[in-house]
Design a protein around this nucleic acid. Structure first.
Length: 412
RNA sequence: GCGGGUGUAGCUCAGUUGGUUAGAGCGCCAGGUUGUGGUCCUGGAUGUCGUGAGUUCGAAUCUCAUCACUCGCCCCA
């Protein structure tokens, strides 16, 4: 605990940036509402098993990135590294299976112990959605369409592309995995150190390797598409057709793999090249087995999550700069306080400085980009009036107190 | 966890081959007469030179360690 620094990988969000954050969240939530989603707020920590059992013991997230600690009663708790497991847990705990289908939106901090980089922090924020209880590929289409809609509304400056793949159902996935492992084992000596490790923990990851040698080996590896069984293939085709029907362009990436164990069928990522090594802006997939595996009623699900910091860096939106009114007392501070309170009650955004002479207060008003100043001159005050100065034009006039709100209306 | 780069006032940076009082712009504060901002002029304050050791007569400038940031790997949002 050295000096007064924020913990590595955490950041203070000052008002300007916090406002951007909120704006991104609000735009996303606003659109999600149009699609019928309601917000759910789950705790930022859960019993450790909620994550360790369901994301997959060998995944990086579980094996080396969780913030896990014991509370005073000795329970092992973990700061959530992602949102889906908590929502699934809530679904079961709260008996929500009575209300299917369920459309949930969430936002909030997530925690992952990783080496910080651009667009990657230890405490970061995500917003995401989960659609539970729908087996049909229509759910996949709706959820992906929502994602595309949000990104569009955020005006992402840099071109974003949607990559899509199918992992197939459990049977298809297992069959493919076996085939791939056999293929890779036969070429073990040509694989990079990292990929040998992947071969052990998550063989599909080898497909994604950036290593030159690996890429050569992988180039003629068996294709996932060839191992999809009939049902899985039909499902994928329907998702693709649906997306094309709603006008969403897709790049099929047969090497696209998800990091967490619970995914099946549809996997997708909206990617960009504008964030350095972090190409993913929004990603998700289908997880039909998760809730059953956690001990709840077998319930299909599909969802995605997006990093708010990443969205904020790319989004072409700016919080509306609402300009305040400023009250400037000349003599009686108490009268100014009362008048300020009155105007605030009337719905105006008003700033009343805490100290300083008139010049100083005017300068401050300017800095706040105030629209107008209400000046309480002693002389005018004696006549039950104040001076209202338009700070853009510099013109000012005397206004009787009884007419103040009316006169101020145009500065709202 | 691994590798590269960086670290000087609130911010952006300069600082010559190690040399004694560490600078600029912006910002901030105070003035430019009596109740008025945004421009302009004048003046002022602010630095453990990331931190800790070491080399040296002497270090912001060299060495080592450490911390933070940053880029890439891993992985992901």
């Amino acid at each position: 605990m050295t000096a007064l620094q924020p913990v590595r990988g955490t950041h203070d969000l000052l008002p300007d940036e916090a406002a951007r954050h909120r704006l991104v969240e609000e735009i996303a939530f606003d659109i999600a509402r149009r699609y019928g989603f309601g917000e759910i707020m789950t705790p930022i920590f859960e019993f450790t098993e909620v994550f360790s059992r369901n994301l997959g013991e060998t995944t990086d997230v579980v094996s080396k990135e969780m913030y896990t600690f014991q509370d005073r009663s000795g329970e092992s708790l973990t700061l959530r590294p992602e949102g889906t497991a908590g929502v699934a847990r809530a679904f079961i705990s709260e008996g929500m299976s009575q209300n299917l289908p369920l459309k949930l939106f969430y936002r909030g901090p997530m925690f992952r112990y990783e080496r910080p980089q651009k667009g990657r922090q230890r405490q970061f924020h995500q917003l995401g959605v989960e659609l539970l209880g729908v087996e049909s590929p229509q759910a996949d289409v709706e959820v992906i369409a929502l994602a595309a809609h949000i990104l569009q509304e955020l005006g992402l400056k840099h071109d974003i592309q949607l990559e899509l793949n199918s992992l197939g159902d459990a049977a298809s996935r297992a069959a493919y995995r076996d085939a791939l492992v056999a293929f890779l084992m036969a070429r073990k000596d040509r694989l990079s150190k990292d990929s040998l490790d992947r071969l052990d923990r998550n063989p599909l990851r080898v497909l994604d390797s950036k290593d030159e040698g690996d890429r050569e080996v992988v180039a003629d590896a068996p294709l996932m598409a060839d191992y999809l069984n009939e049902a899985s293939r039909t499902f994928f085709t329907q998702v693709c057709d649906g997306l094309s029907a709603v006008g969403i362009a897709v790049v099929h990436n047969p090497h696209l793999v998800r990091g967490l164990d619970y995914y099946c069928h549809t996997a997708f990522e909206f990617t960009t090249t504008a964030l350095g090594a972090q190409g993913t802006v929004l990603a998700g997939g289908r997880y039909d087995g998760l809730i059953g595996q956690m001990g709840g009623p077998a319930t299909p699900g599909i969802g995605w999550a997006a990093g708010i910091e990443r969205l904020s860096m790319l989004a072409d939106v700016a919080p509306e700069a609402s300009r305040p009114l400023v009250v400037i007392p000349m003599g009686d501070q108490t009268a100014a306080l009362a008048l300020t309170q009155r105007l605030r009650q009337d719905g105006f955004r008003v700033d009343l400085g805490f100290s300083g002479n008139m010049k100083k207060r005017m300068a401050r008003a300017n800095k706040l980009q105030a629209r107008a100043a209400v000046i309480l001159g002693e002389e005018e005050w004696g006549r039950q009036a104040v001076v209202v100065r338009d700070l853009d034009t510099g013109s000012q006039e005397e206004v009787p107190l009884v007419a103040l709100e009316d006169r101020l209306a145009r500065f709202r």
